[in-house]
Design a protein around this nucleic acid. Structure first.
Lengths: 128, 128, 128, 128
DNA sequence: GTGGTCTAGACCACA
DNA sequence: GTGGTCTAGACCACA
């Protein structure tokens, strides 16, 4: 089985690393890209892969567990627990980002069409 | 005399308050909505308005001054110094937000059209 | 391991503490006494050493970062980024002090030779 | 009688305006350039001359009075009270500046000879 | 009224 | 251990 690089972690974004991990798992679960029973990569794997401290990954995983998103089994990889969400639930998860984007665009006086084109263009970018 | 509420500050966004202020002034200046010579609301005004600590506002203002964005005159309100930017420069300022939005949308498996519609809808929201 | 006391902080000089720190780092970097990659003492260390508030030190460090003088790595000490300057650049940095000194000497009617001797004498003082 | 422009005020030096005035009078008195009985320019004159707030000048004058440096007479200009000082007393007044200059020079790694030459050169500058 | 400086102290993120 | 963010509150300099 291939090692799927699940996370897109940006240490310079200002968003805490553990939150980046947490939010991405939430989203992958919401969309059904991570299904109940799916295994998460181990703390060490993620830490090595992204050159971050295992403690940081571990913390994200613990919070996911507390949220009921994943379940921990002694000596085994963590598994996804939660089920899928509706389309609306999913849009709600990017609500905050949408708001910030639109606020920024307005303050920059970027025309609506320009912004929409920029989003479209990004969507056609490399599907990493 | 109108009290213009310049800033849209969200204490729950995870973005530090002083950075929200700093980034918004940068954007308003970039777009020419704040012109050289324009006065910024006073530290105390902003603090009162948004129920945050004056020191937090002051910190944002100090960083703006270090950046050369505004100029200070003893005992008087701060004034905008820098001028306008090109359209491209402005789009670059929301690049990071765009990236995060598109990543989130993909991880949520939100169809491109749905995302674009969501952006459009937000743009038609209340022009605060 | 030696504890190098980098800073000479005088709480009675009228110069804000954070500016004293900021200016001293600038000078030590300009002269190459602090090299790129060198670590700065931690905020807490400096604060303890000089019995000042950590926030005050932190403020100086934040401004240095905004200036591109140092770089921050999460959870690690700050490191020097910028490189050395020319001899002329360095003299320029004490220009303001030179002006004030000469103005003061003239207003006190201190003869030129007396002032120069006083400077020489100070230079031979303890090389702290 | 000519209006002697007594003060050299620099609003960008970081030194509070009232302190600049206060210190300069102290020095002019110390050196005997202002003799007991000499009149000081009026608050309004100084304020107009340097485009600063009369309150600021007034404050400096009040502090001088509190110090016994000058005396106020209803409706008349302020007059110098204190007498002359010894050469050593005068050098002591620029002690703090000397210290700051020498500290700065060392941190900039400016050779002693270079600093002394810089001081000499400044001394030969325009005798404003 | 304006902005600036500093402290004390709480709590967060990361190694 | 490292740095960062924020608050509450005191007091200064200037218009």
């Amino acid at each position: 089985m291939d090692l799927v690089v699940l996370f897109d972690i940006n240490p310079h974004s200002g968003v805490p690393l553990y939150r980046q991990i947490l939010e991405q798992v939430r989203r992958l679960v919401s969309s059904g890209q991570l299904q109940p029973g799916d295994e998460l990569p181990s703390v060490r794997e993620v830490a090595r892969e992204h050159a971050i401290n295992p403690m940081t990954v571990s913390r994200a995983y613990s919070l996911m567990e507390a949220e009921g998103l994943v379940e921990r089994q002694r000596g085994k990889p963590m598994r996804i627990r939660a089920g899928e969400q509706s389309a609306d639930d999913r849009l709600e998860q990017i609500e905050a980002l949408l708001e910030r984007l639109v606020l920024a665009a307005r303050q920059l006086d970027i025309p609506d069409q320009t912004l929409i084109q920029a989003v479209s263009k990004k969507l056609q970018g490399p599907k990493t």
